[in-house]
């Protein structure tokens, strides 16, 4: 324990640390060898996260215990109205689903895979100011996997990048390093949405001057790349600027999901294998 605290010898110590750091950077960016040690240390550091979440837990306790009865009545009424509305819409959805399946069968198209949805609560810690990431309280034991798509009740939030024993890290679609394949809901034009590092701004690069995109268009996930299932709302276009002498137009969009306000998120997991296997079994059964 006392060895790092031994008498300082200036340059030589710094040179050694420099070499170790550079080796760690190279190893960690090319391989996953250091994930094991990271997971072990992260379990040891989990008290820090629980301590850091105490202030916001106290704040939430007071706001919930001090809210007045009329307010609760109003929010209850709103929720009940919402519930009945959604319930009646889902009645229609079932017939649409049947119709869609028949149409797909007529076109000999493959059936749309169903996604399994897991509800997860965000942890009350401010993970990292410099990257747009949040952590959720589900880990390896809950079947979370890297690349899993994450949505809230409005639209796409991001995807899982790290899975640790008791928590997982989600990178938001606004992270500067994140790109998401989308298409325009109105005409199916496919493109990509990039994060900018700002919570309410996304960029849509590489669209040329005669692309059909206007302010107010809704961008939905296109399912290209295989990470995000197709059809979830991602963003609305807020600005389309044509600059002469530039090869591409400048398009910005606003995320639809409540990226900085959601307390709960939904993890979508594919049951591709099991569903496909079932389908194969059914087909075999039919042909016999």
């Amino acid at each position: 324990m006392a060895s790092p605290f031994r008498k300082n010898s200036g340059w030589s110590q710094f040179a050694l640390v420099f070499v170790i750091s550079v080796v760690m950077m190279i190893v960690d960016s090319r391989t996953s060898w250091l994930n094991g040690p990271r997971n072990v240390v992260s379990v040891a550091l989990s008290p820090i996260q629980s301590l850091a979440s105490i202030p916001s837990a106290i704040g939430r306790y007071f706001t919930s215990s001090l809210s007045a009865e009329p307010d609760l009545q109003i929010s209850y009424d709103n929720l009940r109205n919402e519930y009945f509305k959604l319930k009646s819409e889902s009645l229609l959805l079932r017939t649409l689903q049947e119709e869609n399946r028949d149409l797909r069968a007529l076109l000999a198209a493959s059936e749309r895979l169903k996604e399994k949805i897991t509800l997860a609560e965000l942890m009350d810690v401010n993970l990292d100011r410099d990257n747009h990431r949040v952590s959720v309280g589900l880990g390896i034991g809950d079947g979370v996997y890297i690349g899993q798509a994450v949505i809230d009740d409005q639209g796409v939030i991001g995807q899982v990048t790290e899975v640790m024993p008791f928590s997982s890290i989600i990178v938001l679609i606004t992270d500067p390093g994140h790109a998401l394949p989308v298409q325009i809901e109105r005409n199916g034009l496919r493109t990509v949405v990039h994060g900018t590092g700002s919570v309410s701004l996304l960029r849509v690069p590489f669209l040329n001057q005669n692309s059909d995109i206007v302010v107010g268009d809704v961008l939905i996930s296109s399912g290209m790349g295989g990470r995000f299932p197709n059809g979830y709302p991602v963003a609305t276009v807020t600005d389309v600027k044509i600059v002469e002498d530039e090869a591409f137009i400048r398009v910005t969009a606003d995320p639809i999901a409540k990226l900085d306000r959601s307390n709960h998120v939904l993890l979508l997991s594919r049951q591709a294998q099991t569903d496909a296997e079932k389908r194969v079994e059914e087909l075999i059964g039919e042909s016999n």
Binding site: V17, F18, I20, S21, M25, D28, S29, S42, L45, T161
Partner: peptide, 11 residues
């Protein structure tokens, strides 16, 4: 704690 790449903040 931040789940960052190793080496950068250390250096």
């Amino acid at each position: 704690l931040f789940v960052r790449k190793f080496g950068v903040l250390g250096l």
